[in-house]
Design a protein around this nucleic acid. Structure first.
Lengths: 339, 339
DNA sequence: CTGAAAGCGCTTACAG
DNA sequence: CTGAAAGCGCTTACAG
């Protein structure tokens, strides 16, 4: 079934059918109805490849997770941003394509893949370690939006959480609850996100006039639970513990709590803990984990709208920062101190 | 940059370049090297739409989540199967496309979307309620693989967990631990998966010669935590509690545990519980949740290979069943009884 | 071993 | 308001 067959069935030319499919106004209402009816009956759907070839627009958005391969869909942050991005992009008339073909000329070449598929734009979500080839895409003429990733290209923009606020909200909360001795558990030294949170934390501690004690700052190898466990053990072995700890991820926080429990210490009575990310498990642990939530839905929606504007030349990029929110549950000791 | 420009730069014809790109053998090694070098230098990547138009093969696989819209990426099962499917499909040379465009003629028409994008095949993952339009795709000539979804078309196949075994492993485990009074918490009456697990559970109870007591079978409105909580409350109110309960999802199990705790009952001492799915939270709750895990990675890999074979006419469909595995943690009371 | 030409299914000036 | 024709960038018989 193609446009030629529809044209024949309706007794009109191919051009006329095309015009009708694309909402041109210079077609008589009569022929329009007739053709539309046939399209309806036959269930005809125009070939996207032919259309893309003729127009250079594919209505496809490339989705890229700039980090370790094949963890994307199990990455809680990515997945939620993506969900809201997809929904919004769908409303705007676009479908999503994921690059996974490993037979590709050079598998990390996102720019080549983007021209290969003629995508109208790309969304790039920041993962653990960024691949350098992302820059080629960023600098190209293909519209790109970074999520938690600072893109600088002429046709690029980005959205991110206010990472300074992430940490500053934690410090403020600890401060108001009366904690003065604050520790930190981060990921590896080469993690941008962890470093951003740590430096924001340090700045906030200083701006609250608290004493910064580096011996309470420890780091794991990644953002996962065992790293938090090991990091906390270091702290315990060292002897002198802080009263409250901010962990750069919920899993790190959970690992820390496990280590604490094993040493007969309780959270939040002996030590208060706040995590980061608000993963599903926070609600079901004991104590329930207080955490910082990024507004992932908003991040996704903003990314979609910015990308749309970039594609349609309605904006020259730029960036949006969205405010994180502190979720108070049990592990920070709020109830403890307000009782 | 297109094939014509490459041809001119190399001083050969477009046909020759095409042959080289597609690994035809009837090209001299000399010209082949020259052309390859130019391709390398220019970073040329052939247009997918032109290629698709000419060959009717897109190297694209449509990914469909047959259920409520826009929950897909936050669905733990979907996401893990997809991760492994994507990886395997990538190795086989395919990319993935997600249908989200809501401006499409009729947004639920998966068949039309599939021809629109000329996908080589589709993977359909079973969600809560299946949309009837899935059948059109199933019955079409487009290769399809269902995951946890029985497809019947000539060019279709499916992979699924052995749902009878899911329940039967639970009953066996309970039995060996000495529990004789077994309850069940399911989702709504129209959920296929919940029903499958329930009937398997009933069959297993009977085959172990245990007494089936329907008053210990309760249902929530969905698979989420609050439903488990409410269902458990019903059971508690009714007075007479079973000694062990199998919940059709981990979240239902977690809700049930919360209700139990609130009534001063403890798990597994007063009542043992096994969930289903093995979500991440299981490891971090207290007690840690015993559960049944579907082999999602295997499901994804199998789906990819079957789809590949279907696309390349190397098989006529069929189905694979993969064995679920019981993950013993704390909530089932294993330690309790073996001490 | 190489190349000219038709064809895939659309869109878009352009002529009428 | 309608249609003929060129063109988008590939592939593939086919001729040489």
């Amino acid at each position: 079934m193609n446009i030629k067959m529809i044209a024949e069935m309706a007794g009109v030319s191919v051009s006329t059918v095309s015009k009708i499919m694309n909402n041109y106004s210079d077609v008589s209402e009569k022929t329009k109805q007739r053709v539309l009816e046939i399209i309806e009956q036959t269930g005809y759907s125009p070939s996207n490849s032919a259309k893309t070839l003729a127009t250079k627009k594919s209505n496809l958005i490339g989705v890229i997770f700039a980090g370790e391969l094949n963890v994307e869909f199990t990455h809680p942050f990515f997945v939620e941003v993506l969900n809201s991005f997809k929904k919004q992009m769908g409303v705007l008339g676009y479908d999503l394509i994921f690059f996974s073909n490993e037979k590709f000329i050079s598998s990390g070449d996102y720019f080549a893949r983007s021209v290969h598929f003629n995508v109208d734009g790309c969304v790039i979500i920041s993962g653990q370690k960024m691949e350098p080839t992302i820059r080629d895409l960023d600098m190209s003429s293909i519209p790109c939006i970074g999520v938690d990733l600072e893109l600088k290209g002429k046709k690029s923009g980005f959205v991110m959480s206010d990472n300074f606020q992430v940490s500053s909200k934690v410090v403020e909360h600890f401060y108001l609850l009366g904690y003065r001795e604050l520790g930190f558990i981060g990921s590896a030294a080469d993690s941008d996100i962890s470093n951003l949170r740590e430096s924001g934390y340090v700045k906030a501690i200083e701006s609250f006039g608290l004493t910064l004690n580096r011996q309470w700052f420890v780091h794991g190898d990644d953002f996962f639970e065992p790293s938090g466990y090991t990091a906390m053990q270091q702290l315990i072995q060292a002897g002198n513990l802080p009263k409250a700890i901010f962990a750069a991820s919920d899993l790190l926080a959970l690992g820390a709590i496990r280590a604490l429990k094993e040493h007969g210490l309780s959270v939040p009575e002996d030590i208060a803990i706040i995590g980061c990310d608000d993963i599903e498990a926070c609600k079901y642990t004991s104590p329930k984990l207080s955490t910082i939530r990024q507004n992932k839905e908003r991040l996704g929606i903003l990314a979609a709208h910015m990308l749309y504007d970039l594609i349609n030349n309605q904006s020259g990029g730029g960036s949006f920062v969205v405010e994180p929110v502190l979720i108070v549950r049990e592990s920070c000791g709020s109830q403890l101190n307000t009782q």
